[in-house]
Design a protein around this nucleic acid. Structure first.
Lengths: 202, 202, 202, 202
DNA sequence: TATGAATGAGTCTTCATTCAT
DNA sequence: CATGAATGAAGACTCATTCAT
């Protein structure tokens, strides 16, 4: 197994995942056949099956890719010292992403939520991402409360869940409406966040 | 078709939809076969097909039923005069429902979001429900702004979308986590709403 | 489920098994496709699958049918009192059957031996038939020994196994050669049996 | 192709056949894939296909190897002068082999019988071996009859077939039962052979 | 109208075989 | 000669839908 093969192998896998990604978000996971993926990837069925054991495995892999992409968004927020800044920064990062990204990942995400209710691997991946995001938000809120910046009467975990909801909910609405006013949405959320902050409101 | 048959006809339809509802939320829409529905409804395949032309149509019908159920929740909120009360009342109604309801409708909802991306009928139904909810919230917020109770710098539509997100997002998280702390969640949202209210905070 | 359905159901099952029987002995079990069986049975694939869950199950059923046919051959031998007569009678019955039967059941049998090495259900059926036959022969030999008609120095079970071998071996040779001299074969076996009998040989 | 390559060529072929042999008797002929054979032989698919044109050809070759092994067993029996001794010697050789050999060749043999019904090459090989064995036995019996040692009323060919049946039948029973009492079996056969011998029985 | 047996297009998956490197 | 990635025909099986009774 020379190193060329390893690179080649990875490239092919990526090629297949990418094709599957396209198909899944276009037609939905269930409506996508293995032939669809092959056609999209310009590969034969046999080739695809030599990289993945089953359609299920491809779906699981896709879920994990989405997970990875989502987690990368959060990195780098921790270095900020002020709670308000951190929360606002996170809002900008999360929602900003939604404007750049096409319908593609929005449809993919919604499809995965549904798939998670059926497929264990997918559920694991989706659960993982939610937990991680929850942890990050929870930590920020807790720190803010310790420093007296954030209202101590709210549960940090609950705040985290609401934050996540505002993001996932916007994803859903973008999926259904096709187009959404992200800027207005973010402005509103920032205003609402002030309800949690102890700082003097100018 | 005499009226007696009409009653019978409606009863049968309800019976089928109810069976489909159960199956869909248990196994997912795609994993449910027409035979599953027949078994659950204690009817023959032929019978089911004399009430619905296709599985698609049953799915669409289910989406509309869910729509109806959701819309009923809102009625009666308009009679309240105070914006804060209205919003808080809505929060209680919406989220309170989530505690009573089992996983059932949660799974159904998530499944429908995904189905809406594929199936036009379902999309129409889901879109309709979102629009209606948005309208109600928008109206309340706009009224509040007119009366000076709510911060005029936010877009009423955006506030509505955030409200909807907090609900849909919780549905999603309940679907994924299995169990969620609804009370803490509602408390947090109420606190955040204050960020939008101009009233003196006691 | 009216009784007509039960009769219809059984008839269809028999129809399918019969078709499978034909195909299996013509082309071999592995070379026979479900489509072959359907074509032979003049039924659609869906129809066949509503009577049998899988190809494996059809194979197992075939094995059991063969088992039943084989067991019926033995019934009625026990009423004879003399050991020599019993053994000779059994030889006539067993081998006589081979002349009547076409290549069909011979090929089927050989195929099942091989299938038994792979498929558990088939193995169970083939094992069962062998055990039953062994028991019958063993009982006869043991009774003969008790009455002093048969040489006591041989193990009854071993005699039974040899008997069975002479039958299965002839099945095999008929399968391979196509045609065999059954009469000469039976004569030889009868002569050899005398080697086990204590009676005075005229 | 220089001779060194010839040696190399033969070694590779043997290596492949040996691997196939192992696989076939472990999983059955049909359940064995070309990849299984390659893995077992530690060779690439391409390599295997440069020595054999197809899987069929490997199967045929295996059948011929089995043939060769079986024929070697008989050589050397002819030098004995007494018919009884010859037959007894053959019995010892044939059945003794069964005790040494593992399930391996037993499963292989049974598989080949079944394959012979389908595959012409295999059929030719199996037929050939049976004919040769029959010839040897027939010759011995005929010689015995000429010398007055064996009952002249039996057909030599039929005796030969019975002999072969006792061996093949035991192979089958070992395959199905897993374990058999070879010694008791051989004892019984020797006793039965006396039914064919004219010699005074001590 | 009700039934459920029958249909068959469509799905996932396997595996013998080829061929560019 | 060797390699093993790629091919794609073929197989088992599912399930929405039809239709004779």
């Amino acid at each position: 197994m020379p190193k060329i093969n390893k690179a080649h192998y990875d490239a092919r896998k990526k090629q297949i995942i990418s094709a599957a990604d396209t198909c899944f978000s276009n037609k939905g996971i269930h409506q996508t056949t293995m032939h669809d993926i092959c056609r999209q990837a310009q590969l034969s069925i046999g080739a695809v099956y030599s990289y993945f054991d089953s359609k299920e495995q491809i779906i699981a892999q896709i879920a994990q890719e989405a997970l990875k992409r989502n987690l990368e968004m959060i990195s780098g927020v921790d270095k900020l010292t002020n709670s308000r800044e951190k929360l606002f920064e996170l809002a900008d990062v999360f929602f900003g992403m939604l404007e750049e990204t096409g319908d593609h990942s929005v449809r993919m995400d919604i499809g995965l939520w549904s798939a998670a209710l059926i497929n264990d691997e997918v559920h694991k991946a989706v659960l993982e991402i939610m937990k991680r995001h929850t942890e990050v938000f929870t930590k920020i809120v807790r720190a803010g409360q310790d420093k007296g910046e954030i209202d101590k009467s709210v549960k940090p975990e609950s705040v985290a869940m609401v934050m996540i909801s505002t993001f996932k909910g916007l994803v859903l609405q973008k999926g259904i409406y096709g187009k959404v006013d992200v800027q207005g949405y973010v402005d509103t959320i920032k205003k609402m966040m002030k309800g949690l902050l102890n700082e003097p409101q100018v």
